[in-house]
Computed example of a mutant assay.
Amino acid sequence: MIRLIHWPEAPRNVVLRLTDREGGVSRQPYATFNLATHVGDDPTAVAENRLRLARLLPAMPLWLDQVHGTRVFDVDREAREEMPPRADAAVTTKSCVPLAVLVADCLPVAFAACDGTRVAVAHAGWRGLAGGVLEAVAAHFPRRSFVAWIGPGIGAAHYEVGEEVRRAFVDQTPSLARFFTPGRDVAHWYADLAGIARAKLLAAGAAAVRSSGICTFHEKAFYSYRREGGSTGRFALCLWRTSG
């Protein structure tokens, strides 16, 4: 149901958790620990799954209405009038406030200030990566003062994209061409999302970046949108800081 993540670069007061697809009440094709309300699952099952998760955390996570954009919700400064906030990232200095993003092939990314005073999360699919969601989060930290962790996402061997996706990255940053290898024909490419994310995080000022190295398409403990033909649940990355 929930996995403790060893993140050696993060301060001791930063806690990172990752859910998988076991331990919930959702039925196929969402079996069993789907945490997303927008994928067609029974709302009662999702609510129960979220309650089960909350019992293992300091509080119910701050869920986001993710739209593959670049908006960062600042928990400290923004009123929670719109719940869930429409954003693809969140940041806070408050303690015991779990931040969360939901994914099923897109990358979940965790950020932590090196001194443990601030944490953030981001949902980074190709649109968010190209649009600058990681850079938008990094702007909340001084350069070289934060570390990042890239969670499970679809691996390059299973992520074939069209030329328009490659151009979205390479036209902005030509050096990112190294993360695309030829696909089945001249109009397609295999994209290394985790490699792109790592390069962007380091360029944005991360002091260190660690990746899980887990491919969601290959590892069946996690949901995968592509592997399961689009009808699937979502797992969560949850992050918070303690008062220590």
Rank of each mutant, 00 (worst) to 15 (best):
P98R: 05
E78T: 08
R71Q: 06
R71Y: 05
C106Q: 13
V91H: 06
F111K: 01
A113S: 14
T93S: 08
S95I: 03
V101S: 07
H68Y: 11
V103P: 03
V109L: 02
A89M: 08
T92M: 08
V97Y: 06
P98K: 00
V91M: 05
T92E: 08
E78H: 05
T70H: 06
D105I: 11
V97C: 11
L102F: 08
A90G: 03
D76E: 00
T70N: 10
D76N: 04
G116A: 10
A90K: 03
R86L: 12
K94C: 11
G69F: 06
R71A: 12
T70D: 03
P98F: 01
V75I: 02
D105V: 09
P108D: 02
M83Y: 15
P108Y: 09
R86N: 06
A104R: 14
D88A: 04
M83K: 13
D105P: 10
V91Q: 05
A89H: 07
A100N: 12
V72D: 01
P108G: 09
A110V: 01
T93F: 00
T92Y: 07
E81H: 13
A87K: 08
R80G: 14
V109D: 01
A89P: 07
K94M: 12
V97G: 06
D115I: 05
D105T: 09
L107K: 07
L107T: 08
D76V: 02
E78K: 00
V72P: 02
V75N: 03
C106H: 11
D74C: 08
A110I: 07
P84D: 01
F111A: 01
H68M: 12
F111H: 00
R86I: 14
V72H: 01
V75P: 02
A79N: 10
A87V: 06
C106M: 06
T70V: 15
R86D: 05
L107E: 02
V91G: 02
S95F: 10
C114D: 15
D88R: 07
M83C: 11
T93D: 11
D115P: 07
P84S: 04
L102G: 09
F111P: 02
A110D: 04
V67L: 11
A100H: 10
K94T: 05
A79S: 13
V97D: 03
T93G: 09
D115N: 14
D74L: 05
D88F: 05
H68L: 12
F73Y: 15
A112V: 04
V75R: 06
A87R: 07
V75F: 11
P98Y: 01
A113I: 08
A110N: 04
V91L: 04
L102S: 13
R77E: 12
L99A: 00
A104C: 15
V101D: 11
L107Y: 03
L99V: 01
A104K: 14
D105H: 11
L99D: 00
A113E: 06
V75C: 02
E82K: 14
T93H: 09
A104S: 15
A87N: 10
D105N: 12
D88H: 03
D105S: 14
A110P: 04
V72W: 00
V91Y: 00
R86Q: 14
D76I: 02
P108K: 04
P84G: 04
V75Q: 01
L99I: 01
H68W: 13
G116H: 07
V109P: 02
K94S: 10
V97F: 09
A89F: 06
L99R: 00
T70G: 03
V101F: 08
P98E: 00
R80F: 12
L107R: 10
V97E: 10
